[in-house]
């Protein structure tokens, strides 16, 4: 048994195509990948919104002045 479809390389390479594991599962893998991508945007969007909202109230004038001077 081999996840890539080959248990030995005693083959003519001209007859070899795909050699990645779990061939036939490309569509579910794509769906998982797309969900991962969209979920990342969602998580980042929510966190950034919260972060910016907190930041609006956070600034201490003295520290901000120092940052502006630092350029």
């Amino acid at each position: 048994m081999s996840t890539i479809g080959y248990e030995s390389w005693a083959v003519d390479l001209a007859d070899v195509n795909a050699i990645y594991p779990f061939q036939g599962w490309e569509m579910p893998m794509t769906i998982i990948g797309v969900i991962f991508w969209l979920a990342w945007h969602r998580i980042q969007f929510v966190r950034e919104g919260q972060h910016l909202e907190e930041a609006r109230k956070m600034g201490e004038k003295e520290k901000i002045d120092k940052m502006l001077e630092r350029y």
């Binding site: 070899v16 195509n17 795909a18 050699i19 990645y20 490309e26 893998m29 794509t30």
Partner: peptide, 13 residues
């Protein structure tokens, strides 16, 4: 397409 065998480890491509 992302589920094509060409878009992966493939000795024929």
């Amino acid at each position: 397409l992302p589920w094509s065998e060409n878009m992966a480890t493939n000795l024929d491509d």
